[in-house]
């Protein structure tokens, strides 16, 4: 707790659909302490300066994934980014790129939610076991095959980082394709064929141009670019196997 007199200029992108034709920046002078996150700065604005400001948050500990925003142009979690790191100048906060803005920092997530359902983000058991047969067992090695990809918090930072998604919102996008891989790579799962019809398409892994900025911005080290691009190999192999495999056979 050093001196309490520090202030920072927070330039926030505002958009109130009932009165603004388009978004504009509004600057707030925010006093802050060393341990304040950008989210706390926004909460100070809302509580003490301007109650009309809207933004999403819940856990304030980088696990719910609601507070994604552009901070000085980079997609970050507001609750995990500290004001002290921006003290030299002012700080710009905007809604996540590539999503329609509902209001201020709140984006419309319908497209993401709809696509998430499309990849069937749940286990589709390879062999359904009856209760008396006990649990689905898995070795630590089998867990390692997908563990990293299962830590996604659906924060959508990777979507704001992905120009392919920005240019063509038909693309399923990094986070969801990483989740698709997470279930496909699970030894207990047998749903790969159901998911890969979408996975093999231009909306799936082939929509990715390997910019790989998604993996840089991901706060959970999911590495979606890795999940997607290792599937391109599998997708290409599947494509060629179709010509040599007898109909109805499984690989």
């Amino acid at each position: 707790m050093s001196d309490d007199n520090k202030t920072i200029e927070m330039e926030v992108l505002r958009y109130r659909p009932e009165q603004d034709r388009e978004p504009f920046f509004q600057t707030y002078e925010v006093p802050f302490e060393d341990d304040w996150s950008v989210l706390q700065g926004l909460q100070y604005i809302k509580d003490d300066l301007d109650s009309s400001l809207s933004f999403r948050w819940s856990c304030r500990m980088a696990i719910c994934g609601s507070c994604g925003m552009m901070i000085d142009g980079v997609p970050k979690l507001g609750c995990r980014t500290f004001l002290r790191n921006y003290h030299s100048g002012k700080l710009r906060v905007e809604a996540l790129e590539h999503f329609p803005i509902e209001r201020d920092l709140v984006i419309v997530v319908d497209d993401f939610m709809e696509k998430l359902a499309r990849i069937k983000p749940y286990l589709i058991p390879k062999q359904v076991r009856k209760l008396e047969q006990g649990e689905y067992l898995q070795t630590p090695g089998q867990l390692e095959q997908y563990r990293q990809f299962s830590t996604c918090i659906n924060c959508m930072l990777c979507y704001a980082a992905c120009p392919q998604y920005g240019l063509n919102s038909g693309f399923t996008g990094p986070g969801i394709l990483a989740l698709m891989h997470r279930y496909n790579a699970d030894s207990r799962d047998g749903g790969r064929d159901q998911r890969m019809e979408l996975g093999h398409s231009d909306e799936g892994v082939w929509g990715c141009a390997a910019v790989a900025y998604c993996s840089e911005v991901c706060p959970k080290e999911v590495d979606p670019a890795n999940a997607i691009n290792q599937n391109k190999m599998g997708s290409a192999i599947d494509y060629f196997l179709r010509f040599v495999r007898p109909r109805g056979a499984t690989g």
């Binding site: 958009y15 659909p17 009932e18 388009e22 978004p23 142009g73 980079v74 790129e97 590539h98 999503f99 329609p100 803005i101 509902e102 419309v108 120009p163 920005g166 240019l167 910019v211 790989a212 900025y213 840089e216």
Partner: peptide, 23 residues
């Protein structure tokens, strides 16, 4: 009825971040 989602234009996206210029 008041909903009017605003989608910002993507033009000039590559200038937004040096990462994109390197790409």
């Amino acid at each position: 009825g008041k909903r009017r989602p605003y989608l910002r234009p993507i033009s000039g996206w590559w200038k937004r971040d040096p990462y994109f210029i390197r790409y």
